[in-house]
């Protein structure tokens, strides 16, 4: 089951430069929520704050309240490492582990955290690859081929399978299809559509058609602020804010 995300008063900085300014937002469970906005508006920073990947960049920090289900993301007792097992992430550029086989790539999250039981690993790898619609294409060469030998689109689905294998509750996707061709993009979108029944999905995208196709809710970011958050349909047909309207009609950005 997916988990709701509650964000209030979230601020983020890179050194002295503020990247997010007082973000307040509730992301509903078991839906896809799109984050749109021009380059440099803080979209990526926002999703990276949800699993505390933001703070891995030297000089970067974040403040505010983020709750994933019952977990207080920036709470004192919360470990970023454990949080990230609950809040999975898929990155803009496919980044499979080049030294690992396809199997080991998918099993990495479990194996590197100490799980050794073969039966469970085998089952999880197959299940995750099926979920990511990659199983049929790779099942004969699971342990022979490196994850890096796949095509770009396959690599990205491999990365999705890898993220799914640790059984997260939330999936963050940072422009997951922007480096892919239209056919691979369509496959990824299809995947997002199916995954929402089980996960809460937050997807950053530059492509407004993509947001319209996959997401029920959309947030529009501009200059580090959340300008508007609503049902996707509302954002694209009758936005309340003039800036949102300007952006979606292509007047800037």
């Amino acid at each position: 089951m997916g988990t709701p995300i509650h964000v209030s008063g979230l601020n983020a900085w890179f050194g002295s430069k503020q990247a997010l300014d007082n973000i307040n937002l509730d992301i509903p469970p078991n839906h896809a929520t799109a984050v749109i906005g021009p380059s440099g508006c803080g979209k990526s920073t926002f999703v990276r704050c949800l699993n505390r990947m933001h703070e891995t960049i030297p000089g970067a920090r974040a403040e505010g309240t983020v709750k994933v289900g019952e977990t207080d993301v920036y709470g004192n007792g919360t470990s970023a490492v454990e949080l990230r097992r609950k809040v999975g992430m898929v990155f803009q550029k496919p980044n499979p582990f080049p030294s690992m086989s396809i199997y080991d790539n998918v099993a990495a999250g479990l194996k590197l955290n100490g799980l050794r039981k073969r039966r469970i690993l085998d089952e999880t790898v197959e299940h995750s690859l099926r979920q990511a619609a990659l199983w049929d294409e790779v099942k004969d060469e699971l342990k022979k081929k490196s994850g890096a030998s796949l095509s770009g689109g396959q690599q990205q689905r491999l990365c999705i399978a890898r993220a799914l294998a640790v059984q997260p509750e939330v999936m963050l996707m940072d422009e997951p299809a922007s480096a892919l061709d239209p056919i691979s993009t369509a496959k990824i979108e299809e995947l997002i559509y199916q995954l929402k029944s089980e996960y809460t999905i937050v997807i950053v995208t530059h492509n407004m058609q993509q947001a319209a196709r996959v997401a029920e809710f959309t947030g529009f970011f501009l200059l580090g602020q959340l300008v508007e958050f609503d049902k996707t349909e509302t954002i694209f047909t009758k936005p309340h804010d003039k800036r949102t309207e300007d952006y979606i009609t292509g007047r800037f950005g």
């Binding site: 490492v81 454990e82 097992r85 582990f97 080049p98 999250g109 590197l112 890898r162």
Partner: peptide
């Protein structure tokens, strides 16, 4: 590449293990 490290961190793998 840094993206390889991020991939492992994103899976909840501790830094030393990564």
């Amino acid at each position: 590449p840094q993206s390889i490290r991020e991939a492992a961190w994103g899976l909840g793998v501790p830094r030393w293990r990564t």
